[in-house]
Amino acid sequence: MKYANWQQLFNEQQQQGYYLELMNFLATERQQGKVIYPPENETFAAFDLTPLKQVKVVVFALYLPKINSTQWVSE
């Protein structure tokens, strides 16, 4: 495995153009008052809950169901 943990992977990715663009885009959207899910302080919560060594497959969804603030559940 190339990375021992998520932090190593993110340290590398945070230097990439796509990552910087995405973080800037999200910051701009939030500054304009748009609601972004998950909340900013929970953006990477899944990685805190799942050690990299236990991950077998990561699936990224392009289209997510529309949710509102009453449907958001954080555990």
Rank of each mutant, 00 (worst) to 15 (best):
T70S: 09
I67K: 01
M23P: 09
V55K: 02
N5H: 14
P39E: 01
E29A: 13
N41L: 04
S74H: 04
A61L: 10
Y37G: 01
Q13C: 10
D48P: 02
M1N: 14
V73T: 12
L22K: 14
M1G: 14
S69E: 15
P65Q: 10
A27W: 00
P38L: 00
L22Y: 15
Q7M: 15
L26P: 07
W72F: 11
E40L: 04
E12F: 01
L9W: 11
F25P: 01
Q13S: 08
F60R: 02
T70H: 05
L9D: 00
K53M: 12
Q54N: 13
E29V: 05
T43S: 08
Q15P: 06
I67T: 04
V55G: 07
E40A: 08
Q71V: 00
P38S: 01
E75T: 05
K56Y: 10
P65H: 07
P39N: 02
E75I: 02
V57D: 14
V58P: 10
K34Y: 13
L22M: 14
Y37M: 00
Q31F: 09
V59D: 12
Q16L: 09
L64E: 03
Q8F: 05
A4K: 15
A61F: 08
Q71P: 04
Q32W: 06
P39L: 05
P65I: 05
W6T: 04
F47P: 02
A46L: 08
S74T: 03
Q71G: 05
E29P: 02
M23G: 11
T70A: 07
E21D: 13
F47S: 03
E75L: 06
N41T: 06
A27T: 06
F60Q: 00
L62N: 12
Q31E: 11
Y3E: 08
Y19T: 09
M23R: 12
E75S: 07
Y19C: 10
N68H: 13
V73Y: 04
K66L: 01
L49Y: 06
A27D: 05
